[in-house]
Design a binder for these strands. Structure first.
Lengths: 209, 209
DNA sequence: TTTTACTAACCCAAATCGGGTGATTAACGG
DNA sequence: CCGTTAATCACCCGATTTGGGTTAGTAAAA
């Protein structure tokens, strides 16, 4: 193993899968598996010794959750790349692991070609995910096309969600603060709520803002 | 052209590029370019007649901005897919167009293979983007690894950003509202701000929450 | 053992918020 | 041409929230 080789650590509680990934990755040019663990705790315990460049991480693990593991690793070693392997395409899990610091999402059924492609993409500063996952990620940005709120109301609620007061918003939008209040009353009425907090959480849930 | 063919409309002010895309797309199985426009306004004017399944949209256009065009099209016709073509890999523009409703991002230098791959991905319910763009999108989810805020402070500021009052947060976290206030004071001090609004906007900008 | 994180209490004055009522203007659609 | 919606603004009221100050106990981590 030369010093330019990428050091890979696998965290996977299923021995067969772990061996399969190990076999696949060792077969790829310039990549070497230098550690295999069944738990995040063990990964973290040995991470200073292993000094991995990339971690292949299963999310369904006993003990510490995969996302918590990602968070802890990235907090201490931001430059280590983490590729998640999972059977789930559950939205919450995806966003949690991405926001925790993963830079890719691999299906457990991935073969050599896909693993190789993922590694190369990550190596060149990209992110890897299937186009189905990419679609989910993209959709998470998209606003609802059926908001009951007008443009101005959306604008104002959005500013409210940034913690601004009526008078601050009035200054921002060059209108009277009574006008802001008036919009808020309409917003509350349309959303059937009667407080900032309820309006914001409903609007966020329904992607009105 | 049979009825199963995907109807494509191109919005691109550069005639040469427009013709190139047209040529490429007409060469792909089951895709036909049925309209070419130089401005979003013209696209929208003829959209009822064209009934496109997919719009290839340049973002740098005279008149109405590309993102505004996407927004208007998706509001009236949510099922029309929109693939953005651009020279910019500017973060703001990417997120604006994705949040406006685009489902893919194509470089202006894309050749036949890439265009074909993008169309197929979109057809099967996926999203298409280069892995560099994907990386930017993924990074937009990630929190800062160097937040000055503690776990509790982050939690509280995040609830503040959802419009909750001290007393609501106190109930949520099972602590006294004076404790919430106490955390807020520490947050303000750490972030060198003295209001909710400033704390939230700084924390959002720096991805502390 | 010193620091940090989290917890909590008390005081105070200013600002904010939610609700009510009512009004004007412009624009869009049938 | 008339009704509706969107956006604007005003004034009243009382309760709540907020930001700032100060102090302090406990537990965990460095």
């Amino acid at each position: 193993m030369n010093i330019y080789e990428k050091r890979v650590v696998i965290v996977e509680d299923n021995t067969e899968l772990s061996n399969l990934y190990s076999f696949l990755i060792n077969g790829i040019d310039n990549y070497s598996v230098i550690g295999k663990y069944k738990r995040c705790e063990d990964l973290i315990k040995n991470i200073n010794h292993d000094r991995p460049d990339l971690i292949l991480m299963d999310l369904e693990l006993p003990g510490m959750s995969g996302t918590e593991g990602i968070r802890q690793v990235k907090k201490k070693y931001p430059r280590i790349e983490i590729l998640v392997v999972t059977i789930h395409e559950n939205d919450d899990v995806i966003f949690q692991s991405l926001s925790a610091g993963a830079c890719g999402y691999l299906s457990k059924t991935a073969g050599l070609t896909e693993v190789e492609r993922a590694l190369k993409r990550i190596e060149t500063g990209g992110a890897y995910m299937t186009s189905r996952i990419a679609r989910k990620v993209v959709e998470s940005f998209q606003k609802s096309y059926f908001s009951p709120l007008t443009k101005r109301e959306t604008e104002i609620l959005s500013l409210i969600s940034k913690g601004k007061t009526y008078s601050m918003i009035a200054v921002d939008l060059n209108i009277a603060s009574d006008t802001v209040k008036s919009h808020l009353k309409n917003i509350y009425s349309k959303l059937h709520v009667n407080s900032k907090a309820d309006a914001i959480s409903l609007a966020l849930k329904e992607k009105f803002i």
